[in-house]
Design a protein around this nucleic acid. Structure first.
Length: 156
DNA sequence: GCCAACGTTGGC
DNA sequence: GCCAACGTTGGC
C-alpha cells in the first residue's frame, strides 16, 4: 500500500516550459527526460502525490520557482515514438519503450524565485552530493529529503 | 558565448 | 570491457 510521501526536484528550462506554463496548463506530462538515472527516479521512485520542486535551469537567474505534485504513475513518454519531436528516439520502440515520464500537477509558485546562488549558501546543510550544489551535476530529476525540502522552503 | 563536467557511443 | 571522441548540460 502507500508509502509515505517523497520529495523530488525536477529541472526545466523556462524558455521551453516554465512554472508559469505549468500554472496555465495545470497538469503536464513531463516529457523529454533522456537520462537513465532521471528516468529511473520517475519510474521506480515516484508515487502519486509526491512533492516536487520545479527548478528553472539554463536561464538568467536559475533557481527554484514553484511547487508541484506527482500526478500519475510512470508511463512511456510518447515523444520518443514521434519522428517530428525533438525527443524522438529511433532506438526505442512501442514494444520496448526506453523512456518513461510522469504527469506533474501545478501546486503553486513560490512567493519569489529562490536563486541557485542562495541555495548554494546552504550547501553544507544540504549535504555533500546534493545535485544543485554539487559541482558539475546535470541530473534533471532527483530526490530531495524531507529535511532538504524543509530547508529549501524556509528560504522562500 | 565560453567551457568544464558529464553521459553516451562506438571502435577495437 | 576499455576508453577516446563526441554531444549535451547548464552556470557563469
Amino acid at each position: 500500500m502507500g508509502t509515505r510521501k517523497r520529495y523530488w526536484m525536477m529541472k526545466t528550462e523556462p524558455e521551453t516550459f516554465s512554472i508559469d506554463d505549468l500554472a496555465r496548463v495545470g497538469t503536464e506530462p513531463w516529457n523529454g527526460v533522456r537520462n537513465y538515472q532521471a528516468r529511473n527516479f520517475m519510474r521506480d521512485g515516484m508515487q502519486l502525490g509526491d512533492g516536487v520542486m520545479i527548478y528553472h535551469s539554463n536561464c538568467k537567474v536559475p533557481g527554484i520557482a514553484g511547487l508541484a505534485t506527482v500526478a500519475s504513475r510512470a508511463y512511456p513518454d510518447p515523444t520518443q515514438f514521434d519522428p517530428q519531436s525533438d525527443y524522438f528516439d529511433p532506438a526505442s520502440s512501442r514494444e520496448n519503450p526506453r523512456w518513461q515520464l510522469v504527469d506533474v500537477a501545478f501546486e503553486r509558485k513560490l512567493r519569489r524565485l529562490i536563486p541557485l546562488e542562495e541555495v548554494k549558501r546552504h550547501a553544507d546543510a544540504l549535504g555533500e552530493g546534493f545535485p544543485l550544489t554539487a559541482r558539475g551535476n546535470r541530473l534533471s530529476v532527483f530526490p530531495v529529503t524531507a529535511a532538504q525540502w524543509k530547508l529549501l522552503l524556509s528560504l522562500e
